[in-house]
Simulated assay, not measured.
Amino acid sequence: MKEIRKKYFIAFGENLQKLIADHNKDVMTIASIGKLEPKQVYRVLNGEHGASMGTIISIAKGLEISPKELFDFPFDLGI
């Protein structure tokens, strides 16, 4: 389970990178708008840990998107 979780965090971070590029934003702007420390955003981007619901909402606010979009990416659970 731990391995699947780590892969999911990495996939989530990759999707976040894509959304940042697609919306012409940068980490500093997202952090500022979402009232987060840039370090928090970088940790999520790098797949270091999963984001809490509060962090997800803040990142979505910074990107000016629905939080749902952060989860809209393919992921194989290996089932």
Rank of each mutant, 00 (worst) to 15 (best):
K61C: 14
A60N: 11
I56E: 02
L36G: 05
N24R: 13
T29W: 02
I56H: 05
H49T: 12
V41Q: 10
L36R: 02
S52N: 11
G54W: 04
Y42K: 02
L63N: 03
Q40F: 07
M28C: 04
E37A: 09
K35H: 15
G50R: 03
L45W: 10
D26P: 07
E64Q: 15
I33D: 06
G62A: 13
V41E: 00
M28G: 03
K39G: 08
I57Y: 06
V41G: 00
E48R: 06
A60W: 00
R43K: 03
K25W: 06
A60E: 07
M53N: 05
K25H: 08
I57Q: 09
S32P: 01
V41S: 03
S58L: 06
D26H: 14
E64R: 12
P38T: 13
P38C: 04
L63M: 01
T55E: 11
L45I: 00
V27F: 08
L45F: 01
K35Q: 15
A60T: 14
N46M: 08
D26G: 09
G54S: 10
L36H: 09
S32E: 15
P38N: 04
I30T: 01
M28W: 05
V27C: 07
T29G: 06
L45T: 00
K25N: 07
I33E: 09
K61D: 05
I30D: 08
L63I: 07
K39Y: 06
A51M: 11
A31T: 01
I57K: 09
L63V: 13
I33H: 07
L45N: 10
T55C: 10
I56M: 15
H49N: 13
L36E: 01
D22M: 10
E48I: 13
D22G: 02
S52G: 04
